[in-house]
Design a protein around this nucleic acid. Structure first.
Length: 203
DNA sequence: GTCCGGATTACCT
DNA sequence: GGTAATCCGGACT
């Protein structure tokens, strides 16, 4: 099955399938190591849960498009749309391993003290790739696109856990977060993940 | 671990 | 036109 078919078919399959995929913009390249799935109609954490608005419009379109939104007053987030037109779903790209363009990433992320800080969070990744509203709706599966996905190598093992940052009752208990088990040094909040999985709070 | 800035949207008067 | 909520990050303890 192609990536597009997987995206169209099932966001819960597509989210782990995007691990290992390469995010490309110009000379910048990074391997996706962490994703989360969001969907309608049974997931209250999905932005489209309360129906179509201008912000989430692209989620109702073709699979493989960039759903970009702004949150917390500071941060842009990159998602890949999923499911057929008319059915809203998306995969949040949460973290990536930098492959090429490290100098540019470091320039755009001056607060990063080590390379593990460059792309280890959705806001960081968007900043490093200079992703904002301009990328809204871009076809990430089109090799001609400025921002796009290129095939990579699937992880050997995938770790799952609860999604990050969701309030209680918003689907916070759903294990719809996916990580490359062999590249945990590049993911966001690995400590939080361990705490969640052990069923305890704090570390 | 905890605390707060920051700007946009959505939804209510 | 007001206000609550937000798929977070950085600074600090």
């Amino acid at each position: 099955m192609t990536l597009r078919e997987t995206l169209e078919h099932d966001v819960l399959q597509a989210a782990p399938a995007l691990l290992g995929t390469i995010l490309v913009r110009g000379n910048l390249r990074a391997r996706i190591v962490e994703t989360e799935a969001y969907r309608t109609p049974d997931d209250p954490g999905c932005h489209a849960h309360r129906g179509e608005t201008p912000r989430v419009k692209v989620m109702y379109g073709e699979p493989g498009l960039a759903y970009v939104y702004f949150t917390y007053g500071n941060h842009w987030m990159l998602n890949v749309t999923a499911h057929p037109p008319g059915v809203a779903a998306a995969v949040l790209i949460r973290a990536a391993e930098p492959l090429e363009g490290l100098e540019v990433f470091r320039e755009r992320r001056p607060k990063a003290r080590k390379d593990e800080d460059l792309l280890s969070g959705p806001g960081k990744l968007a900043a490093a790739f200079n992703i904002d509203a301009e990328m809204y709706g871009v076809n990430l599966l089109d090799p001609q696109s400025e921002l796009r996905l290129e095939p990579g190598t699937l992880p050997v093992a995938v770790v799952t856990g609860p999604r990050i940052g969701l309030a209680k009752g918003m689907g916070d208990e759903l294990p719809w977060r996916f990580m490359d088990a062999d590249r945990m040094r590049w993911v966001s909040k690995p400590h939080l993940f361990r705490a969640d999985m052990s069923g305890k709070t704090g570390t």
